[in-house]
Write a protein that binds this DNA or RNA. Structure first.
Lengths: 217, 217, 217, 217
DNA sequence: GATGAATGAGGCTTCATTCAT
DNA sequence: CATGAATGAAGCCTCATTCAT
């Protein structure tokens, strides 16, 4: 699955893509994720990204001609990672098991890719200027498919009647918060960061809430 | 209740903050909230804030000498708004009613103060550099108080055993998302923005999930 | 007479125009004329203009926010100077005298404002990107008026039949060349620059050629 | 006839220039003429020239090591084209016929090589930094030879007494203007470009003016 | 209080040119 | 021949902040 981030009709202007040296691209995108997720688009500087990537600024600009291109490059990748977990939820499965698994995948994503999650959050927080189109088309379609799965469960009486969309919004928010708001969470928990145990407990709490909360009466 | 935003040992640089807050200060902070919440700290410019406030840049800087001061001024206010809803949750009340009411207050906040919510979210997303201290002290204490309330309910067998902190994290995330991520949500719903009905449905969905999910077996 | 240099509908973005300190504007435009006329738009740097004007670059940019604005400011002025001499040619006058006077005014302009002439020449040489619209409207109308004068003379039998437009083109080229191509001219004359005498002789040569060349047979 | 463009004592840096000029060099110089004449020296980029020439930038730089070299390469060629028409004017011929023929050749040059004309004009407009030396030596000598021809005519009473140099300046200006200032001329004529008819009329107007203007009384 | 002027620092980007293969 | 990589220098422009009135 590849989602295109169009920019006024243009393709994303990544430069080459050929040659072994487009290993550089990876390095750059990784560095960019680190910097963008921490400082936001405006707060990030090309200089800083270059420094993290271990390249000269001019060299970095040889691969991506504009800051925006780097940003879009990162966004593209994350977008795909964001949608993936949703795909696996199947109508044939047991609702409880399927939902627990989905929540598990989302929590794992927060634990393993917190920067990606924050990057994505920042983009949306600012009004999703570069994502809106994709969300309204591809992503919306993906979500609708999964909403249909939930509706099927409801019709079969496997779960209580609930708005599938808002169910997703709750799950997204409650899982992503462990990446996006981890600084607040760990501060409140009085820790320096979130441990595997914290994530496990988060997963358990949310899963229980959702699965029990959905049990038909 | 007044929470102090310390800044690395310095005094809080917010200028006066007497009881009768200068009308201008209010105007400025409102404008600043609008601009910061949309563009982030780095993306916001004093010029833009001044324009929204209807002042000249120089005049604005007469009231707040540094960009950071404006930001802290806004943050200060929001911080208080953020904590308030939590206060009202009382141990004596019925858990279901209390939680529904709390969720209601949080959702209302998202509906009525989306910019404030986003401002706050952005700050935390960036690692809460200016908030960490306050969170680790005052806020944490506040939360602990309410966690005690939840624990009391659990002990009385009124609700199922659950980690109170994670319960809060879920509620915060799931309510705030309707402000912070509203661009994504409305895009997925195929709308141009969220209506009162959307918020009502969000509140209902979340409340049901939480309250039913917490019912003792 | 004021000719507007529109820029995609926008007004020319000169900043203030108020206050005594818009004396700075004059200083800047003078400096800009000097630099642009020598190096062209691309070759000129804001730094250099600022240096000539005796201002810091940042200060200069306080008055004109973009290089283009400075350029347009200069162009605006020159445009008016360029048209002026044409105005005075009157149908009632004696053709010979009128033409000699016009040529005289044009030669004087080349002598007194060589930089303005070269600036104008450069703009047109590059395809008149910023002037085309004005030329096709206002300037064209001005020229047409004077062409009518020439036609009147022809009809009265005062001068030989000639295309008035091409007559103007010849006069413009032949007078402006003493400013625009002065480096070539003085090099060929083996001098270091053109003297008043050179200009006088140029004027005489051209005037004689034109006036005699137009005498009815 | 070959005119050398010296560059501050250095050797001319144009690369080979053997009889069989590399096909590539021609391609490059043609592209360079196109780009330089449109954007000026500073405004032109090697990338753009390479693109027009259908080469990679690096490859282009293999043929000409510096931007300046490309420029000089173009200038060299144009210089020769510029002088040529002058050569043919002969003392033995009839002045009227000779002058008409010369004007015809110059007008034809403007029509057939407008970019070359503009390139040349730009160089001179900027003070002819790279041409001055050549002009003061070779070109000046060439012109002096032809001035002698004119003087011979004057002495024989075939034409009126006139300054031969200024006569040339007028002819050059008035013919080249149809290339250099064509954007202005066509704008004033309300056309999109100059047609063969326009050039014919230009030639006729100028020739008549000059020839009649020179007739002895 | 209010504001016009001024500026240093820094950010993005372009570009000629060099280097290695 | 050809070209992908790399880079230093410079140019335009933004912006927070200071200063003087």
């Amino acid at each position: 699955m590849t989602l295109r981030l169009a920019k006024d009709g243009e393709e994303v202007r990544v430069r080459k893509r050929t040659r072994i040296q487009s290993l550089r691209e990876r390095t750059i995108l990784d560095a960019a994720l680190e910097v963008f997720s921490r400082f936001g688009f405006e707060g990030a500087t090309i200089d800083r990204i270059a420094a993290v990537a271990g390249l000269s600024k001019a060299n970095l600009l040889y691969y991506f001609r504009r800051k925006e291109d780097i940003y879009l490059g990162v966004l593209q990748q994350i977008l795909e990672m964001w949608i993936e977990p949703l795909e696996a939820m199947r109508a044939e499965g047991d609702p409880g098991a399927e939902l627990r698994a989905y929540i598990g995948r989302k929590i794992r994503f927060s634990r393993e890719h917190p920067m990606a999650s924050r990057f994505f959050a920042m983009e949306i927080l600012q009004g999703a200027p570069r994502l809106e189109k994709v969300i309204r088309s591809e992503i919306r379609a993906h979500v609708e498919e999964r909403a249909a799965v939930v509706r099927a469960w409801i019709e079969k009486g496997l779960i209580r009647d609930i708005d599938p969309y808002h169910l997703f919004f709750v799950i997204w928010a409650a899982t992503q918060t462990y990446a996006d708001f981890s600084s607040q969470i760990s501060a409140i928990l009085g820790k320096e960061g979130l441990s595997a145990r914290d994530f496990a407990r988060a997963e358990e709490t949310l899963s229980d809430l959702v699965v029990r909360g959905l049990m038909p009466e």
